[in-house]
């Protein structure tokens, strides 16, 4: 499980903020501690160098260049995360009223979801609009399918349709 979490974090989807983020972070810390221990007792010459290895560089602000790469990444996000939200800000601090409303609805539905803060990733922000042919953020995807923006999510929540979509098995 630890190695799974690690692998997930070290791949290019590391910009996703999942609901289980705390768990992932603590396993990362544990792993980092293990690693530094290994380096300290080993004979690896890197131990003597003043530069730290790339592996230890912060991963969160991974850059995404180019539209193609962004769209490929979005495709892997929406296929790999059952409920995926592209939003401004993060779920605990949305930076736009519309994003805030969708987060609120998902919480009311009791849904676990992953999110990307598009304000951190301009290429994703533009890419996701092309990907769904939808002009605005937030955007919600369930089981790889684009569901809608704020208005649609709100209306579907009120009609009970969203619950059905969220409960659908993959």
């Amino acid at each position: 499980m630890l190695s799974n979490a690690l692998r997930r974090c070290s791949t290019r989807s590391s910009l996703i903020l999942g609901v289980s983020r705390t768990a992932v972070r603590s396993s990362l810390v544990a792993a980092a501690n293990n690693n530094s221990h290994l380096v300290a007792v080993g004979t690896n010459p890197r131990f003597l160098s003043s530069d730290s290895h790339d592996d230890f560089a912060p991963q969160k602000k991974a850059t995404v260049d180019g539209e193609e790469e962004a769209i490929a990444m979005i495709k892997s996000h929406v296929e790999g995360n059952r409920v995926m939200l592209y939003m401004k800000g993060n779920p605990s601090m949305p930076m736009c009223g519309f994003s805030a409303r969708v987060v609120d609805v998902l919480k009311k539905e009791g849904a676990d979801f992953s999110s990307v803060n598009v304000l951190d990733y301009p290429a994703i922000r533009e890419g996701v609009k092309k990907f769904s042919e939808w002009p605005t953020i937030p955007q919600l995807y369930v089981n790889g399918e684009f569901i809608g923006g704020c208005d649609i999510i709100t209306a579907m929540h009120e009609s009970g349709e969203l619950k059905e979509v969220l409960e659908e098995e993959k």
Binding site: W134, F146, G148, I152, A155
Partner: peptide, 21 residues
């Protein structure tokens, strides 16, 4: 619903750059 919104978005495509939300 999604399709309805898409119909409207399409009509307003060229105005979208001026519209934030």
């Amino acid at each position: 619903l999604l399709k309805r919104h898409r119909m409207v978005n399409e009509i307003l495509q060229e105005d979208m750059s001026k519209i934030h939300a």
